[in-house]
């Protein structure tokens, strides 16, 4: 089984769960399974071309999957994936 860690900004789409367990052979399968169970996550991870958005990174352990085989990166039982989105905010910023 693969554990996917959900960052706090996206937990509103996972019923506040900080991680989701999936069964998958590679990163694409893992993310698709996550989205199947939590469909409203989709636009926050994939763009219109079904590619990972440019302000989102997927890590396997502490390594960016980009440094491996991208979304084709093979996974083994016990692997941990993390979704890292760009964040900014807190105050009323510019208006």
């Amino acid at each position: 089984m693969i554990t996917i860690f959900i960052p706090t900004p996206l937990r509103r789409f996972t019923s506040d769960k900080s991680s989701v367990i999936v069964a998958a052979r590679n990163v694409t399968e893992a993310i698709r399974q996550l989205i199947t169970s939590h469909p409203s996550l989709s636009p926050y991870i994939y763009d219109e071309s079904e590619l990972i958005r440019k302000h989102v990174r997927i890590y396997l352990g502490e390594e960016d999957i980009r440094e491996k085989q991208g979304t084709d990166t093979l996974l083994k039982d016990g692997d941990e994936l993390s979704i890292i989105p760009a964040i900014a905010g807190g105050s009323g910023l510019v208006n």
Partner: peptide, 23 residues
């Protein structure tokens, strides 16, 4: 790390932002 900013539609509104004060 992040080649480009998120599209406008995926950025929460200011009021939606918010932050725990001590963070």
């Amino acid at each position: 790390l992040f080649p480009a900013p998120p599209p406008a539609g995926l950025v929460p509104s200011c009021a939606e932002g918010g932050v725990l004060g001590v963070l």
